[in-house]
Nucleic acid binder design. Structure first.
Lengths: 174, 174
DNA sequence: GTATTATTGTTGCATGCAACAACAATTGAT
DNA sequence: ATCAATTGTTGTTGCATGCAACAATAATAC
């Protein structure tokens, strides 16, 4: 609970880059949140823009699918299993770039909700063949409707053609 | 290299979305990692592509700036402070979309490395006016060189004009 | 066939980040 | 003077990642 020391002292008079007017009432010399804060070189970094965009898009996805309690990662796992029944855990992990260990927990949760079933593989007794249950398939159909709604939010935000350009540009990373 | 048992059999022929041929040699029925695994609807979701891209770009950034031990988040904080000396913690947090609490740890680390200094604000004794130290400014100049190198990696990966289109499309999120 | 090596799924741990709530100090308004 | 709002701090929790180990099983070498 130390707040700060009060050794206030005439510092070197912050020569802030942002210009002129701050808050009208207080002639503050520190830059507060309502002031215009420049990004400098940051604005030229793809990584920064992508991070902000990804944050926004994940939040919207989670919000849009909140009623069914499905995260983007869970959705990707369900989709891939449904499209490729009998998939191995390793195969899912590699395809989606998820760690084996992490996938274990994800599948545990999905299996408890009886969306996914781990079946004994006929060809390799080490591995599990993954399938969606009947209710899993049914649920996924509903999830996809909501995911499509989320995708419409994306269109509203960046525009139809920008979205398509984005998909093209990022295709190598899928 | 997995390669697995060879008890070929025309089983129920998993009617996977991916068509016909699996591995040439083994007619396995589970789908292993070397098989072609379809993404189904996932390929049409911007969020998925963005997540994969963001993963790649952050890894490259971290690797490229490994010698100076600076993460993307730290870099963004340093850049913004340098461009707007005297910024408040709240202002930085809001501008970069970082939580106040999270920023505390970030600044602690940066202050211990004597890159950043928390000075007492003259106008509001609750807040800190943030500045880079002299060595902080010098270090940042070096970081920017490395960050530019990282950005060249991005260009190599997606192409010069794609990168520029990306920056345009994602501009609203900066 | 037996011994060795590799892979799969699992568990545990250590780290780091993000979201939340609680709190003290301070400020501005009434 | 009082009171609500703001700022920075702390602590907690949950989640994701990475790493290292392990048992069971499979592939390969001998």
């Amino acid at each position: 609970m130390p707040a700060r020391a009060a050794k206030a002292e005439a510092k070197s008079e912050a020569k802030s880059a942002v210009s002129g007017k701050r808050k009208p009432k207080t002639e503050a010399q520190d830059i507060d949140a309502s002031a215009h804060v420049g990004l400098d070189g940051l604005a030229l970094h793809v990584g920064y823009a992508v991070r902000r965009f990804q944050l926004w898009i994940f939040q919207d996805f989670i919000k849009t699918l909140a009623t069914v309690d499905i995260t983007p990662t869970q959705y990707s796992v369900l989709t891939v299993i449904s499209a490729n029944p009998g998939l191995t855990q390793m195969a899912v992990a590699k395809r989606l770039g998820i760690e084996r260990a992490r996938l274990v927990h994800l599948l545990n949760a999905l299996e408890q909700r009886t969306l996914v079933k781990r079946a004994a593989s006929k060809v390799d007794r080490r591995s599990h063949a993954l399938h969606l249950t009947a209710s899993g398939e049914a649920s996924l159909r509903q999830f996809k409707l909501l995911a499509a709604e989320h995708e419409r939010h994306v269109i509203e935000k960046i525009g139809k053609d920008n979205r398509e350009r984005l998909l093209e540009i990022l295709a190598p990373f899928r």
